[in-house]
Design a protein around this nucleic acid. Structure first.
Lengths: 240, 240
DNA sequence: AATTTATTGTCTAATTATTAGACAATAAGT
DNA sequence: ACTTATTGTCTAATAATTAGACAATAAATT
């Protein structure tokens, strides 16, 4: 058995990903549940090969979890407190990966995993419909959680999500990255509801529509007849 | 001789600092010159102890170079291309640190320095008058260079400065951090010239003054009589 | 087929923010 | 007393944002 080969990874450096998705008015985060007696929730993460760029490592980790490889992602912060140690791993060594005990753990050259880690935070924006969440080797399940009601995550991972959301908010208007969270085509109302979910505040419909159209990045397509008893909205597509 | 003790540092992870200062209308960066036959310019950098937070490591490195310990600094980006290897070091092994050769280098357990490195970029803002630039163990000199005319630096360090400047510009208005570059008291003209140096563009004097005063973070002190044949400007101090 | 309902797209007025122009105040030189 | 260069601030012009209004319309209801 060889879960991780220490020779190939940069030690004490990891990547953790906040994967944002959007559905039905809620901004969501993909959270795996780790297979242990006491359920543990953790951001999807991984390590960097010694001959791999950190961006490629993040893309690889994301593809492993989502099956998507042309994902929007951005490095946003490094979490490097001196006490960033995976105590949950230490406390659960015997259960970790098929009841391996401390001795076997060391024999397998896995001791480096119990050291202090510096973690590079990435956040990703995905069309939630395109994602086929895959479990990691140690996971029991993977689920989407509303960013406003996440479970307690290990270490400082809740703080990592918080900071990712702050960065997303700062970048949303400037970089026009929000459309990565929507399907190929969408209505203006869907864009507005997405923005309202991200900023957690309402926008005025008339002015929001003007602001988005003035960006000059949307292409208006045919109307979308929903069957509702009202004027049918246009569909739009993000271009460029 | 023991320059670096590999046991105590996190391997393949480094910190590099872009130290900004301001003088006479010019935004400057502190650049050490490394002691080798061919002169090499490099950002001041260092490594992280295994029991040290990355922020503390950055502060320690900055204090070593500037003598200041209450410095404003901010982590801004991680540079992690797979080819970030210090070729200049590799090519100059025999000169590196008192003519150490490849064999001695290995015997001293310094081989880890020739691996690929991931570097966390920090930028710092200092009052240039308070700084007493100190040379590192391998430096021949340390000098302030105008950010617009830097020498060719090793590896991707020029790119690191460029990205630090972009981040400084993005944060300047939002976080009001520019005053860290000025002495305790200053005139409005000096603030404006600082902003003009950072953004590399002129501002209208009347509106600039209004904008800065409207921030409500400056305290107006006595007038500054310069001896010039014109109205004496007020001195201001940044508060909070 | 006319009427009603809920929503969409857009227009205009009101408000606020930004930019440009102007000028009095003033410290020291002539 | 007059001149010069610069400072501090005011006001008008312009631009951007916000709030209010209303016609258009897809389908259900009468």
């Amino acid at each position: 058995m060889k879960l991780f080969d220490e020779k190939n990874f940069i030690h004490q450096l990891s990547i953790d990903c906040v994967i944002f998705g959007y559905k039905a008015g809620e901004l969501k985060v993909l959270i795996p549940k780790i297979l242990l007696k006491k359920p543990l929730y953790s951001l999807p993460g991984g390590f960097i090969y010694v001959d791999e760029s950190i961006d490629k490592a993040a893309l690889r980790i994301l593809e492993e979890r989502t099956g998507i490889n042309d994902i929007y992602l951005e490095q946003y912060y490094v979490f490097g407190n001196e006490n960033r140690i995976n105590n949950d791993l230490l406390n659960n060594l015997e259960e970790f990966s098929q009841q391996m005990n401390q001795l076997e753990f060391e024999e397998n050259g896995l001791n480096w995993l119990t050291n202090r880690f510096v973690s590079i935070g990435y956040y990703a924006l995905v069309d939630i419909n395109k994602v086929n969440p895959k479990m990691g080797e140690m996971d029991e399940s993977v689920d989407w959680y509303n960013v406003k009601s996440l479970p307690k995550l290990i270490m400082d991972h809740n703080e990592m999500v918080e900071k990712a959301l702050e960065t997303l908010r700062r970048n949303l208007d400037e970089k026009l990255i929000g459309f990565n969270l929507l399907p190929e085509t969408f209505t203006m109302r869907e864009v507005q509801e997405l923005y309202e979910a991200i900023y957690d505040k309402p926008f005025a419909r008339n002015n929001f529509q003007k602001k988005i159209l003035d960006l000059d990045v949307l292409e208006r397509l045919e109307k979308k007849f929903t069957g509702a008893a009202n004027k049918a909205p246009y569909l739009y597509r993000f271009r460029r």
